[in-house]
Structure formats: structure tokens, C-alpha cells
């Protein structure tokens, strides 16, 4: 793979639209969670405009739900910041994986693309990038789809939130589970990768039990990444 091939970084209306369409099916489920968030936020006492602003700017589902639990008359700022940071710490590593591909973009484009990076469009475009396919449109267009459907869902939740039950108790969070598992087994498969899956899985479970809350994703990601780096170093 070469990160200097200019056509891999191309960002135009066509590939953005193609990326958008590719993420629309998953975005339908994002609407449902946005709806749940809109409802939960209303119940937590936030006013409508704040809720929409939060979904638009923060665009991080798990962090937003966690923030609601800390929301009260006197919001404790440090716990809020720490929670939001911990849940999103994986974005540090995600940013690092995107770095070689986004490095060549002018700053404004880079900022704009990074605004809409989320698990689904990141995972799909990284898979394409690693195969040597152009995926900038998938990253940005797909991100726009997730982002706009998240805002749409949040807005609907303000008015129609009562129409659905808690999507987590219904088990709709399994949509993300199926997506993640499909991306995991759809990627590279060999003995080394198999061991990395196991290490990432076990270390995330251990972190879940023994480390501070919300640290399990970043711990699993670091463990897998470090093992991958060391393993190849030895073989060289």
C-alpha cells in the first residue's frame, strides 16, 4: 500500500455521494438511536435547542448518553470531561490510523473530514485503504450520512421519542454488534490476526472488570496494536 498515490486521497462530489449511499443502510439504525437519545435528553431536562446542538457538535452517541447521566442542576465538569474523554479515547488511535491517508489534505479539508469520523465509516474506509482502494469518499460521505441521520434521529426523538421503547432493551444495539463482527471477520484472517483478536478481546474484558470505567476499548485496541507491532518486528 502506498499513501502517496494521489488518487487514493481524492475527494469529490461523486465519491462523497457514493460513500454517503454506502452508509445509508446502517444510518437507518443510527436514526433509532438518535431518537432514543433525543427522548432521553428531554427527560434529563435539556432544552430542545441544546439537544440538537449537542448531537450536531459532539456527534458521539455513547458519550452523549453518558453525559445525560451526569446532567443535573449542578453539572460536575471534571467527571463529565473525563467520561467523554475516556469513551472517545479510541479516536486518538483512530486518528493515528487515518494520519497517513489524511496527511496530504489541506487543513480545512482535514478538519472537516475528522469532524464526521465515527466507528462505522472509519472501519469501512480503513479496510478499503488497506486493500489499496480509494476510500476518502467513503470516510467523508459515509460520515456525513451517519452524522445527518444522527441529528435527524435526535430531532425526531424530541417529538416522537415516546413512540418506541428503549432500543437497548429491545436489543437494537445488536445491530452495531453484527456490524462490528462482520467487519472483524471480513478483514484479514491468518494465525497472527486470530491471536490479535483473542488478545484484544481478553484485554478488553479484563479492563472492563479491573480498570476504570470506559477504558476497555482503548485498552483492547492498544494491546492488539502493540502485539501486532512486536510480532512483526521479531519476524524481520
Amino acid at each position: 500500500m502506498s499513501d502517496s498515490d494521489p488518487h487514493l486521497h481524492e475527494l469529490n462530489c461523486q465519491n462523497i455521494w457514493a460513500g454517503f449511499k454506502q452508509l445509508v443502510p446502517i444510518s437507518f439504525f443510527v436514526v433509532i438511536f438518535g431518537l432514543a437519545f433525543g427522548l432521553a435528553a428531554t427527560q434529563a431536562g435539556l432544552d430542545n435547542s441544546s439537544i440538537i446542538v449537542m448531537s450536531t457538535l459532539v456527534f458521539a452517541g455513547a458519550s452523549q448518553f453518558a453525559a445525560l447521566e451526569l446532567w443535573s442542576v449542578e453539572v460536575a465538569i471534571i467527571p463529565l470531561a473525563v467520561t467523554v474523554f475516556a469513551i472517545n479515547a479510541r479516536h486518538l488511535l483512530m486518528g493515528a490510523t487515518l494520519y497517513p491517508w489524511l496527511r496530504q489534505l489541506p487543513p480545512t479539508k482535514r478538519y472537516t473530514v475528522m469532524l464526521v469520523v465515527s466507528d462505522a465509516n472509519w472501519a469501512m474506509s480503513m479496510q478499503a485503504f488497506t486493500r489499496g482502494e480509494p476510500a476518502m469518499g467513503l470516510l467523508f460521505g459515509g460520515g456525513l450520512a451517519l452524522w445527518s441521520f444522527w441529528i435527524l434521529g435526535t430531532w425526531l426523538g424530541l417529538y416522537f421519542g415516546n413512540a418506541i421503547q428503549d432500543p437497548v432493551s429491545l436489543g437494537l444495539d445488536m445491530v452495531m454488534g453484527c456490524f462490528l463482527l462482520a467487519m472483524v471477520v471480513g478483514g484479514q484472517k491468518d494465525f497472527r490476526m486470530f491471536i490479535i483478536w483473542i488478545v484484544a478481546a481478553v484485554s478488553s474484558l479484563l479492563a472492563y472488570w479491573y480498570l476504570p470505567p470506559n477504558s476497555h476499548v482503548i485498552v483492547g485496541a492498544l494491546a492488539g496494536g502493540i502485539l501486532g507491532a512486536i510480532w512483526l518486528e521479531k519476524k524481520r
Binding site: 452495531m176 467487519m183 472483524v184 476499548v217 483492547g220 485496541a221 492488539g224 496494536g225
Partner: peptide
């Protein structure tokens, strides 16, 4: 190896 590790650690 971070992408598969992140996805595994969430899923």
C-alpha cells in the same frame, strides 16, 4: 492492527 483490535474490543 488497531482497526480489528478496536472492533473486537467493542464487540
Amino acid at each position: 492492527f488497531v482497526p480489528p483490535a478496536v472492533l473486537t474490543a467493542i464487540a
